[in-house]
Amino acid sequence: MNQFTLAIGFGLVTSAILVLSAVGFTLQFGVSNIFNLAYGDAMTLSAFIAYLADAAGAGIWVAILVGAATGALVSVLISRLIFTPFLRRGTSRFAMVMVSLALAVILQNAIQAIAGTKFRSYAEGQGKSLHLLGMILTSYQLVIIAVAVASMVGLHLLLQYTRIGKALRATAADPELARSCGIATDRVSAAAWAISGALCGLGGVTLALNLASFDFHFGSEFLLIVVAAAVFGSVGQPYGAMVGAVVIGMASELAAIWTPSLKQVVAFVILVVILLIRPGGLWRRAFVPMDVAAR
């Protein structure tokens, strides 16, 4: 068995989880212009609610759906109840980062206070191991890859071929212009928060499924790599985030062949290099407005 092909297998799984999470994160940024640091903890929360469904005997597919629904609901609530009122009040973008950080701290510690610090696992465990082309993957890792591929194809079709997808891209590119073209940007942004929240939930459940056991802060730990993938692919650009997720996911697993403890450091080195070459990230048509006074 070749170590290299094994690592590619793990890289595929990591990339799949990262694709789900990073695309959700970047979509939220695209439509709201806010770095939502509570994203990682929304992933944790989704995984815990999915755990409840799973422990009640609902099965893994229902649990995944429950996780996606939780992520969508939490994200819409965060946006409607916290972010939008603060923005309407004229809070600067500096302060919005602090708002999302405060939310992340509240959410994570609430999960800890309620669920405790012990590790949990889904009832299904790891499933059977399968040998494919020199890779060893469990059946649930195949499920993770399938969920990621299906979600990305679905998102691509949605963004390119539906009215809501086109409206969403327009809103992300220039909200004021979109509004003056007759797009109900409020509703579009609610839809974007729901879609990205569902991806966030999927990311959380698949990450928890792959980790075998999880506690209250696995999501916020993973957020670091999610941010790296999103910044790599120019924040706000879903296709950039897909590329970033695959590059960082594969690179960190391949690097683990020789230094298992430095997986995260590889993600970081890639991020630094891309920032030095292209400060705005990889995506060529990146629309990254410079800092102007609070908008």
């Binding site: 770095f35 973008r93 500096f94 919005m96 980062v97 670091l224 941010v227 790296a228 910044v231 924040v235 430095l262 995260q264 450091v265 970081f268 991020l271 630094v272 920032l275 030095l276 400060p279 705005g280 990254v288 407005p289 410079m290 800092d291």
Partner: peptide
């Protein structure tokens, strides 16, 4: 590298990543 992105919140994200990596 952390001060290269044009927006302050981008920079903050990069610094957050740096801080966590340093502790790792």
């Amino acid at each position: 590298f952390a001060l290269r992105p044009g927006r302050r919140d981008f920079q903050a994200m990069v610094m957050l990543v740096v801080s966590i990596i340093a502790s790792t």
